[in-house]
């Protein structure tokens, strides 16, 4: 028997803070290491092998420590106040996204009744941070990078929002726990076709929203160094570029797993698989999504800026608009196919 423990609201809050502060950096390290290793092996390389001894597992810890000891350089011409505020505007939303993602049926920091709406809202705050970073640097590369990032993030936010709207229509709730509960096996073709198209649109738009290749014009190293973060150095660079990038990668993978892959539910409704706890399923599905994002990166060449905009406005947005109408007709006139 496990003794019943009762905690006051403040103690629960402290536990939640502790868990989030432990999990988010750990997941970021694991995903960052996975990025090194998966990409290396996809390109027939070994990747980091020495730090930490076993297959270079400690490479990112070493990297982080190195950055802690690096000089913090803010260029003379930069707007110092905006320059340092930008870091917070990018980092804080990256952590706050995790608050509403249900890891298990009751393993969630806050089950907001407008959970998905909160997610979409908070994940787009960082756009402002990137524009702040780019403008305050007073650097041409940074300015070009920030303007590209602004254009790209607003263009690809719409397909994400609209494909999430499709999920909301099918599940009839904005709460992420209810959305997971509403999904039946098989999750992806739920109902036939619509879910799959929404999932594909969501995945492509997520890659663009994360400014990862093939949609990495805003940080294209060969042209504009690191885009908006060209002038950032030391820990500031970690907190405004590296950490949020990987944290958002895991967050979008988790959102994809929650909205489209059935979240913490077993992949097949079998009695045997029900024994495995929900958070294991959730982790596996998130890991699959992360792998998908990592796989895309070395596979496709970079898109040009005009191709990128054309793809968002002339392909993804019309497709999702049509999808909303099809999903609406489906829910109204053929609801038995859903359940």
């Amino acid at each position: 028997m496990i003794p019943e423990i009762t905690l006051t609201a403040w103690q629960i809050l402290l536990v939640k803070i502790g868990v989030i502060l432990a999990i988010v950096p750990t997941m970021t390290l694991v995903a960052g290491y996975a990025e090194h290793k998966v990409m290396a092996h996809l390109q027939h390389r070994l990747g980091p092998m020495y730090p930490g001894g076993f297959h270079g597992w400690a490479v990112l810890l070493a990297d982080g420590l190195k950055f802690l000891y690096k000089e913090d350089i803010i260029p003379e011409r930069a707007d110092r106040r905006v320059f340092s505020l930008a870091t917070f505007a990018i980092f804080v939303p990256a952590v706050m996204v995790y608050l509403v993602i249900p890891v298990d049926r009751s393993l969630i920091v806050e089950d907001l009744d407008v959970g998905i709406f909160y997610l979409l809202a908070i994940s787009s705050v960082s756009t402002i941070g990137i524009l702040m970073a780019g403008w305050s640097s007073a650097n041409k590369y940074a300015l070009i990078g920030a303007l590209r990032a602004g254009a790209q993030l607003i263009a690809y936010e719409l397909p994400i929002v609209l494909s999430a709207a499709v999920v909301v229509m099918l599940s009839g709730s904005l709460s992420l726990v209810d959305i997971v509960e509403a999904q039946n096996w098989p999750f992806l073709i739920w109902p036939p076709g619509i879910g799959l198209i929404a999932f594909l649109v969501f995945t492509m738009a997520s890659v663009a929203e994360l400014t990862r290749p093939p949609f990495d014009m805003p940080v294209a190293e060969s042209e504009i160094i690191t885009g908006a973060f060209t002038e950032y150095s030391g820990m500031r660079f970690i907190f405004s570029f590296f950490f949020p990038e990987v944290a958002n990668l895991v967050a979008f993978a988790a959102i994809g797993a929650t909205l489209f892959l059935g979240g913490y539910q077993p992949i097949v409704p079998l009695g045997v698989l029900e024994v495995i706890p929900g958070f294991v399923w959730f982790t596996l599905k998130t890991a699959f999504m992360v792998f998908l994002f990592l796989w895309i990166r070395p596979t496709f060449p970079r898109l040009r800026e005009d191709q990128l905009q054309k793809f968002a406005w002339k392909v993804l947005i019309p497709v999702t608009l049509a999808l909303i109408l099809v999903a609406g007709a489906w829910v109204l006139y053929a609801p038995e196919a859903l359940r």
Binding site: L13, V109, E110, M235, F239
Partner: peptide, 22 residues
């Protein structure tokens, strides 16, 4: 309120690490 507190925690985390780095 919880979400607001997390916004503060995130801010403090960045500020503290930058201070540590200093």
């Amino acid at each position: 309120v919880t979400i607001g507190i997390f916004a503060i925690v995130g801010t403090v985390l960045v500020a503290a690490t930058l201070q540590l780095s200093r």
